[in-house]
Each structure stands twice: as structure tokens, then as C-alpha cells.
Amino acid sequence: MNIAFFLTPKSEVIYLKKNMTMRQALEKMEYHRYTSVAVIDDDGRYDGTITEGDLLWLMKNNTDLTFKDTSKIKLDDVPRHRSNTAVSINADIESLVELASCQNFVPVVDDNGVFIGIIKRSDIINYYYNIMKQARELSLNAAV
């Protein structure tokens, strides 16, 4: 199976540019109610994922930092505590499932590292759940 089946394209995904400010990230994440968002560079390449935790840890460790000050901090200057790995659009399903087991979403890149979308863990789970459900129904019908 091609992992593109699960892809939510970039045009339908919220992402941040690494030259955006911490405040812009906070506002966008709050508006969309996301706890983590992919970050891309000026060339559209996947640069990592920023999480609420990354932003909160920065504020915790800088007690003099006010919300107003967050408009002066670039996302590129926010330390990231977790490295969310991207997969190539040509990756196999096993690699995808392995990453999805520890990431809410898996960023997907093309052969040049350009961000093209995400695959949500929930979409993978729902797909395999439906396969198991159909198999169960078939076995129950066969037993009757």
C-alpha cells in the first residue's frame, strides 16, 4: 500500500514558517486547537515540529518573558524537546506505522525534503480498525 492513501495535503494542513514569532505560533495553535504543528523553512522544507510544551518550557525557563515579548522571539530560536521525524512520500507502510506509534502526526516530504502534508495517527488507526471490523463481520457471517 502506498502511504499517499493516508496523506492530508499541505493545502489542508496548518503549518508554521520558522521565521514566524512565538506569539504567532501561540495564536495559530490556540485558534486551531492544535498541540503541535509542523514548521517549514523559506524553501518549504520540513524543519521540525513545534509543540505547546516547547513554548511553555521556554516561558517557564525565562521568568521575565511576558506574552508581549513573545512577538520578538522567532520560532527558530525556540528549543524543541522532541524531534518528530518526517517520512518520504515513497516510504513503506511499516516505517509510517512505526513513526505514528510515537507521533500524533507524521510529516511527509517529497524527494527534495519539501513538506507536502501530514499523515494523522488517527487516520491510520481508523483504517486498520475498519479492516479488522470487516474481517470480524465476515468471520461471523461465515460461522452462521
Rank of each mutant, 00 (worst) to 15 (best):
L96A: 04
E137D: 14
K74L: 14
I40E: 11
A91W: 00
V39R: 06
D43G: 03
G44S: 05
D42H: 04
D76I: 09
L55P: 05
I119G: 02
D42C: 00
V37Q: 10
Y129I: 12
A100N: 07
V97F: 03
R136C: 01
F6Y: 14
S139Y: 10
S88A: 08
R80K: 15
Q103A: 04
S139C: 01
K120V: 01
G44H: 02
G44P: 01
V87P: 00
I89M: 12
V108Y: 03
A135L: 15
E98D: 10
N130L: 15
L56K: 11
Q103Y: 02
G44Q: 04
K18P: 00
S83L: 09
A86Q: 08
D64V: 13
N61K: 14
D92N: 15
K17F: 04
K68W: 05
H32W: 13
S83V: 06
E137N: 14
P9T: 07
Q24K: 12
D43Y: 03
G44V: 03
A91Y: 02
S11W: 00
N19L: 04
K17E: 08
E27P: 01
K72A: 12
S95T: 12
S95N: 11
V78W: 03
S122T: 09
A91M: 00
Y127P: 04
N84F: 11
K10F: 03
I118A: 11
N2G: 05
D69G: 12
L65M: 15
F5K: 14
A38E: 06
S11I: 09
D123G: 07
V109S: 08
K120W: 05
T63S: 15
M1L: 13
S101N: 07
K133A: 14
D64R: 15
A142M: 13
I118W: 07
K60Q: 08
S36P: 01
L75C: 09
I116R: 04
N130I: 00
C102Y: 05
R23W: 05
V108R: 10
T21G: 08
A143S: 08
T35K: 11
S122G: 01
F6R: 10
D47I: 00
D110G: 09
M59N: 03
K28W: 02
S139K: 14
T49V: 15
G53N: 09
I124G: 06
R121F: 03
D110K: 07
A143T: 02
R23C: 06
R82I: 06
Y128H: 01
K10Q: 11
Y31S: 14
N19D: 13
D64A: 15
G117D: 03
L140Y: 05
P107D: 04
D42G: 07
